[in-house]
Design a protein around this nucleic acid. Structure first.
Ligand code: MN
Ligand code: MN
Ligand code: ZN
Ligand code: ZN
Lengths: 145, 145
DNA sequence: TCAGGAATTAGAATAATTCCAATTTAGCTT
DNA sequence: AAGCTAAATTGGAATTATTCTAATTCCTGA
């Protein structure tokens, strides 16, 4: 039985894709859904595993295709830390990432408005930043783990 | 004729390596030198090309080995932007990177003390950041290009 | 000088991602 | 509903930055 999004997610999903003239396929819905369901920062491989439980016929290429589409639509974010495999994040608010070197886990770190604008102000005259990425690495565990 | 470092660079180079019990080989010196000579942000491949002019026998593996050593010693920094090949940077002061999407060029962006400490303050209780990376991408040209 | 560990080397291997050509599907148009 | 067409998916091959391996060469310090 193929994956189904909650109706509020489905609204967002369908209308966002339609706006760009893209088709809301079941594979795209599933990829989107599994990322939102578990708010960790899965790799394409993790996502592939999860998607296969719902849509066993899905290929790896499709997972990559869907991810590219979803990122292009702004429905999920791409997170790159060092040269490790790309991860995907459902948190669309401006935030940084912290990677624990020991566990490999990635945590969201809120960025307050003030610090955000200070960081943006670092960009020199004549440059226009479309994108800002802030990431930390080190050790640590969240209060409840 | 094998590459030779300026004497002040050579001081830093030799003493830093010796401190860690590592040998200051001609390949390591050359890799270090070509990164410092041209203050762009070369890839391992760029560095390989430059090193070969001075030490034609050098292998790719050695370039990677040397880079790992130099990064480990803190003599150069590694810069990763998205999934593009790792770049290397001789600027050891705390700074961010701006990548121009059009030209692919990478520019250093100074980070003032104040903004730096604000960024560090984002890290939540219980986490200890060893590393902070800030990068921008967008369009722009520096005043003189 | 020479022994032994360190470093370098060429080439094979790895792994995330992208490409490709063939097939299937979704969303019209009749 | 059937047919049409472009879009999406598929399996597998290709790409590519990087790492590994095992053999050779080089330093260094006894
Ligand atoms: Mn897996
Ligand atoms: Mn080249
Ligand atoms: Zn996140
Ligand atoms: Zn730099």
């Amino acid at each position: 039985m193929s994956y189904s999004l909650t109706s509020s997610r489905n609204q967002t999903f369908i209308s966002t894709l339609r706006e760009k003239g893209l088709r809301p396929t079941k594979q795209r819905a599933c990829v989107y859904g599994v990322i939102l369901d578990k708010r960790d920062h899965p790799t394409a491989d993790d996502i592939y595993d999860r998607v296969k439980r719902h849509l066993p016929g899905t290929s790896f290429a499709t997972v990559y295709n869907c991810l590219e589409t979803l990122v292009g639509c702004g429905l999920v974010r791409q997170v790159n830390m060092d040269r490790s495999p790309t991860r995907y994040c459902p948190n669309l608010s401006p935030h940084a990432h912290f990677r624990c070197i020991q566990s490999g886990k990635i945590y969201d770190v809120e960025i307050d408005k003030d610090t955000l604008s200070r960081m943006q102000a670092l960009v020199p005259e004549g440059f226009e930043a479309e994108n800002l990425d802030l990431s930390f690495s080190g050790t640590g565990t969240p209060p409840h783990d």
